[in-house]
Design a protein around this nucleic acid. Structure first.
Length: 208
DNA sequence: GCGCCGATTGGCT
DNA sequence: GCCAATCGGCGCC
């Protein structure tokens, strides 16, 4: 996939990434799958975005980088998340990859995921990075130049793609910036939001 | 199937 | 210090 594809607003790119194929060569083995769930994170007017309030920081700097690069960060002490950077250099924006339908290296991914059944290998943002071996080494890498690539796949029809609020955010979940393949068995199961002072807040989601 | 809970670390205030 | 774009396990329907 070329930089021009990503040199647009994240909420235009996110739905078009449904059906594309993400491939990793981490560990010297090809693993990957078809993207079935995405979320857009904007550079401004988006309380849920890492680029929302503090301008450029050490963590979010890649979100302002060249389109078509990978923004990988670490959270909850355990999990990596992968985003694909959108917008021209200097403007923040990214699409979070939330779920894949496993296609390549399923044996390897199953091993990395402690024998989980195929439908659960990549059905969440933390799960798919574990399955594909994605970590901070991929942060800032350009697609096709490092361990990660994204290829055009069979695009689903508009009617097969559903839209909803984003999942798991402490703020910004009211914006409908999540897209997913409605009938896919590989999308994430919605969960409650993060713990905030011992209280768990509900998070909006659609069918998923 | 659903809901609660702990794990665990870096970034930011 | 506080918090986070989460996950797996466990208890209880």
């Amino acid at each position: 996939m070329d930089a021009a594809f990503f040199d647009r607003a994240p909420d235009l790119v996110a739905p078009e990434l449904i059906g594309a194929v993400l491939v990793s060569t981490a560990g010297g083995v090809e693993t990957g799958g078809r993207i079935v769930e995405t979320e857009a994170y904007l550079g401004s007017d988006d309380a849920g975005s890492h680029a929302a309030t503090h301008g450029v920081t050490k963590r979010n700097a890649v979100m302002y980088g060249p389109p078509g690069s990978a923004y990988v960060y670490f959270t909850y002490g355990n999990h990596h998340m992968i985003n694909l950077v959108c917008e021209r250099e200097g403007v923040a924006g990214a699409v979070l990859i939330r779920a894949l339908e496993p296609l390549l290296g399923i044996e390897v991914m199953t091993g990395r995921r402690r024998g989980m059944p195929i439908k659960d290998l990549c059905s969440g943002p933390g799960k798919l990075t574990a399955a594909l071996g994605i970590d901070l080494a991929d942060n800032g890498s350009l697609l096709g130049r490092g361990r990660l690539s994204v290829y055009y796949g069979e695009r689903p029809s508009q009617g097969e793609i559903a839209r909803s609020g984003r999942i798991g955010l402490s703020s910004g979940h009211e914006l409908e910036l999540r897209w997913y393949l409605e009938k896919s068995a590989y999308v994430s199961r919605g969960r409650m939001g993060p713990v905030v002072r011992g209280v768990r807040r509900p998070t909006k989601e659609g069918q998923g």
